[in-house]
Design a protein around this nucleic acid. Structure first.
Lengths: 109, 109
DNA sequence: TTTCACTACCTCGTAATACTATATAGTATT
DNA sequence: AATACTATATAGTATTACGAGGTAGTGAAA
């Protein structure tokens, strides 16, 4: 999907938090997940930026583990604050989704 | 709704375009509309920057008309390019909404 | 053994966008 | 005269995703 960049602002971080909550994961894997999901244009740089940010915000715990395939991986897990933030994120999303549907209905009026 | 700012990026412009398509309107009225809809924190400055932007992009026609209540109003209407852009906007939104629902379903898995 | 592919992380600079704050001005009411 | 409401405008700021590049480990092919 083209021109999605601006629409992803304020959304992508929540998606990453959700992915982490679903199960311990790391940057490279998150990028692959997003690409497979259909967010083709999301590159590693974008994901790492988000990971640095959520770590600075204190939303995650980080653990470095060796990989058999390459360099060590940095695994992320949500802490209490991260779970709270994820919950708030979905509340924001639901609000927006509801409002957008109200607006959308005027489309063919 | 708090902390909605980032999530509105890439969305608000589309909402404004939709409002204009629904019927000839102007900045002050658009701001009131958004506030009534539940986007309480959106102020006039935000709307006017969007209006300047979509005019520069050539998505709208502008007509100045006198008002009985105050200074003259600048009325906006969508042109062909604006209608195309609005259509593209809803396609982007639908894509994102669909993907977000897929992601959201993992929440309680 | 060296070259390539894949895995994996990191960071600087840029563009786009919403918001803050402030200014200007017309009309009506008190 | 002062206030409230209507109405437009813009310069500066913060946040965010992205582009472009760099570093490094492992294993397979050349």
């Amino acid at each position: 999907m083209k021109n999605l960049t601006e629409m992803l602002k304020g959304v992508l971080e929540g998606v990453v938090l959700q992915k982490i909550q679903t199960g311990e994961t790391y940057g490279y894997e998150i990028t692959r997940y997003l690409n497979e999901l259909g967010f083709d244009d999301i590159v590693e740089g974008t994901v790492y930026t988000i990971l640095v940010r959520i770590e600075k915000k204190g939303l995650v715990e980080v653990e470095k583990k060796k990989s058999e395939l390459g360099p060590a991986r940095k695994f992320y897990t949500l802490n209490a604050k991260g779970k709270q933030e994820l919950n708030d994120f979905w509340l924001r999303w639901s609000f927006l989704e509801k409002k957008m549907n109200e607006i959308k209905e005027q489309r063919d009026v």
